Simulated scan of single mutants.
Amino acid sequence: MATPEPKLTLADSAPAPARMGRADQTLAKKRRLLQIAREEFIRQGYRALTMDAIAQAAGVSKRTLYLWHEDKAALFRACLAAGVERFPLPQLNDPAEPEADLRAFGVALLLEFTRPSTVGMARLLLREAHEFAEFGSLIRQSQDDYLVAPLAAHLARAGIAKDSPAAAAKILLSMLLMPVHNYLLIDAELPGEVEIEAHVQMVVGTFLGGARGRQRPT
């Protein structure tokens, strides 16, 4: 049985306070535009959605929309950037005990990747990637810049996989995100918070056991 599509909301958007300055009001409007544009891309698809429809949904003029984003491709890239900037960063609290830090990162990562808007954008990219070659490079660049590089730096600081931290980071990310991949590819159910905790605990323990085993002197 196919998993129902996650329900999208505008819960994160809020009206700008009346006393906000003009620059703050403009920034708030730009953020709200990106939130609405993300939802419209997810709902209608990249090819079908027009700039006219986005302007109407966001309540801005076409002139303003094109002033902020030169075309639909630029707007879509901005929507992606707004999403990946939400990805958590691993925190190194105790280099001698990295498991707790990696577990906290893994839980935060899965909670973000199971958000309706994040899942919706991932489904959109998978669905339309064959038509738009630039999607592939956008996905790879976002993954490298916002996931692999920060995690690789964290692993290196913690003394894990010192010879190949980027390769180790990719392996760990693949293991952590397996429930999301299963949802996108085979319609498996997305995990809840309890399942996320259990999955992350198992993945991090397995990963650290393998990494420590490879680093033992022969």
Results as ranks from 00 to 15, higher is better:
191 P>D: 01
36 I>L: 10
32 R>D: 11
101 D>S: 12
72 K>W: 05
27 L>A: 15
76 F>W: 07
79 C>L: 04
120 G>S: 02
5 E>C: 08
114 T>V: 07
146 Y>T: 10
52 D>Y: 02
121 M>N: 05
63 R>S: 11
68 W>F: 07
130 H>R: 15
134 E>N: 09
144 D>Y: 03
51 M>L: 15
199 H>T: 07
131 E>W: 13
37 A>F: 03
189 E>W: 01
94 D>C: 01
13 S>Q: 14
173 L>H: 00
213 G>L: 08
181 H>V: 12
20 M>H: 03
217 P>M: 13
174 S>A: 12
144 D>A: 14
89 L>Y: 04
24 D>G: 14
79 C>V: 15
192 G>S: 05
68 W>E: 08
35 Q>D: 13
169 A>D: 12
184 L>S: 04
214 R>W: 02
157 R>A: 10
140 R>N: 10
168 A>D: 10
4 P>D: 00
15 P>C: 10
122 A>M: 09
133 A>V: 05
113 F>L: 09
184 L>I: 06
95 P>A: 04
140 R>T: 14
194 V>I: 09
147 L>N: 00
79 C>T: 15
35 Q>I: 13
36 I>S: 07
107 V>F: 05
89 L>V: 06
200 V>L: 08
207 F>W: 07
71 D>N: 15
200 V>N: 07
118 T>P: 00
218 T>S: 12
201 Q>A: 15
131 E>T: 08
34 L>R: 13
206 T>Y: 09
129 A>G: 04
98 P>V: 06
26 T>W: 02
36 I>F: 03
112 E>I: 05
115 R>W: 06
63 R>Q: 09
91 Q>T: 12
59 G>T: 08
161 A>Y: 01
147 L>G: 00
186 I>K: 06
127 R>K: 14
88 P>K: 02
102 L>H: 06
65 L>G: 03
147 L>E: 01
199 H>N: 09
87 F>D: 12
32 R>H: 14
112 E>P: 03
215 Q>Y: 04
3 T>K: 09
213 G>T: 04
13 S>D: 12
56 Q>Y: 08
205 G>T: 03
207 F>L: 10
32 R>T: 11
176 L>C: 07
193 E>W: 03
95 P>T: 08
193 E>M: 09
20 M>N: 05
157 R>S: 08
9 T>F: 04
50 T>L: 05
137 S>D: 08
190 L>R: 06
46 Y>F: 15
176 L>A: 01
163 D>H: 14
165 P>M: 06
139 I>Q: 10
203 V>I: 05
61 S>H: 03
43 R>S: 12
92 L>W: 02
169 A>P: 05
38 R>F: 03
132 F>H: 15
126 L>D: 04
15 P>K: 04
147 L>Y: 00
37 A>L: 08
44 Q>A: 12
136 G>K: 08
85 E>V: 07
212 R>H: 14
55 A>P: 02
58 A>D: 13
30 K>N: 06
174 S>N: 13
142 S>D: 15
87 F>R: 05
135 F>L: 01
211 A>S: 12
110 L>N: 01
175 M>E: 09
1 M>S: 10
120 G>C: 00
34 L>D: 05
78 A>G: 11
